[in-house]
Amino acid sequence: MSDFFMFSLVPLAVAVVIGMTCALLGNFLVLRRQSLIGDAISHVALPGIVASFILTGMLASGAMMLGAGVSALVTVVMIELIRRLGRVEVSAAMGVTFTSLFALGVLLLEWHDAAGVHLDVEHALYGNLESLIWFEGTGPYALFDPLALAELPPQLARVVLVGGLVVAFVAVFRRHLVLGSFDADFAASVRARPALVDLLLVSLVAVAAIAAFEAVGSIIVIAMFICPAAAARLMTDRLGAQIAWSQGFAVVASVLGYVLAGYGPGWLGFDASLSAAGMIATVAGLLLLATCLWGRRRHPAEA
């Protein structure tokens, strides 16, 4: 049991919080047909982090977050510039931007590899959920021990903070977000500032992606932005219910995925553990598959 508190509690909590945060934002991305912006932003976090590392010379998380944030901003601006000035279709503009920036990130990384840095592409992609060990978490009583709580991995506090930020954003801009998602022209006509809210949404997507990136890797982030929200979309026609469903799916996927990755091989008699982040994303995809097959509102609207 003490193993659970030491090795599993924090990763599980981080996964659940990130899953719920991403799924909450994902609802609006899916409704706006902008799902792939999360994909693009989580790819470009890599060059940002590498650049900040090269500039500061250390793996300080503050600088890394800043670097990734700047690169996310650069991405959004670049996509818009290419789209508007070059009159390129948006998905192509996105493709040009994020692949080039990612290539830049990989190049910088390999270039710096000689310095013996522990930072590699695989790590960025898969994350390292399992490494979030709470050394002081020796039992349930540690939860009430301020000294032990102070030793919690800092990633947990960070993702909780970001989660709170996202919830606050959605709560404050609820009406604006809904209006902008369904009818941007109408939103503009009633001064709901769709462009500004759009930018805020994308920035928060970036913030969430970066916070998650450090803890769990980028692949789970993309899955969590899209799969729970898309699955929820197939279950209901109401936005409130959709958000509730997506949160439920995110929790189920995180817990089930983590348990399967950690204990699944053991049940089958193998002594190994699988990538927790990968498994969580896989479970999220399977949930979406299930709703595609049996969801109550899966069919396209009648034309």
Binding site: D39, L125, Y126, I219, I220, I222, A223, I226, C227, A261, L274, S275, A277, G278, M279, I280, A281, T282, A284, G285, L286, L288
Partner: peptide, 9 residues
């Protein structure tokens, strides 16, 4: 994301 994640697993 799902396929890639399964590949990672």
């Amino acid at each position: 994301s799902t396929f890639f994640a399964f590949g990672v697993v």
